[in-house]
Amino acid sequence: MARIIVITSGKGGVGKTTTSSALAMGLALRGHRTAVIDFDVGLRNLDLVMGCERRVVYDFVNVLNSEANLTQALIKDKRCENLFILPASQTRDKSSLKREGVGRVMEELSRGFDYVVCDSPAGIEHGAMMAMYYADDAIIVTNPEISSVRDSDRMLGILAGKSRRAETAATPIREYLLLSRYDPERVQRGDMMSVDDVQEILSLELLGVVPESKAVLTASNAGTPIILDKESDAGQAYSDVVKRYLGERLPHRFIETTKKGLLNRLFGE
């Protein structure tokens, strides 16, 4: 049985797809058979971030409508044999996602995979609801910014009330916080909320802090999940995220400013 993980946030542009691709790749690299699904029907992007956009033949909606089977639609990653991508349809709309159909696909994936990562669309409409409905775990991607935190809290309410686990009174979804686009210097200056501030408000288990990093754009430009860029701070942060998700206890990195010496402070920048 696979563990189903939803990457969600409410707010758009906070790093859901970046996180989905990094987590899926990270899990696969550690030997777990992993499928990553793009739930953003109509605005498919995961294939671009994963670098497999030219290999899309069939998509999630084709599978739901029995126009293709899963084996035909799943794209095998070229860098890691344990990783498969199920792209969203670009031409249909989100109403193509029916709860029963999605459930069937989840069940089938559960049989062949260890982890199923669901990349949720932004918002709290149907697509986002479908992405989180069958989840066992939820990673709430949040930026240290007022509207993102509020939306994350809203999403927590939805996970607690509208998911399958909530409806069947099963063990609740395990919820984790992933704080992204974090800028320790701005935090130190007092114009960005700190990890502690956000945690105090959301009270979630912190899975990791991903610093604001130019490497993220470079990686998505190239279609490479950021976790493969082992030199970059964001890539390393995502490696830690994967390890923590799998149960390792690691200290959080990238939350302190790199200490500047006196000379640097006087003449730097």
Binding site: I146, V149, R150, D153, M193, S194, D197, E200, I201
Partner: peptide, 18 residues
């Protein structure tokens, strides 16, 4: 120093209300 503090305070009220 303070815009983050303001954000946090506003959020605490908002979130409690929500």
């Amino acid at each position: 120093r303070g815009s983050a503090v303001v954000a946090k305070e506003r959020l605490q009220i908002l979130v409690a209300h929500d």
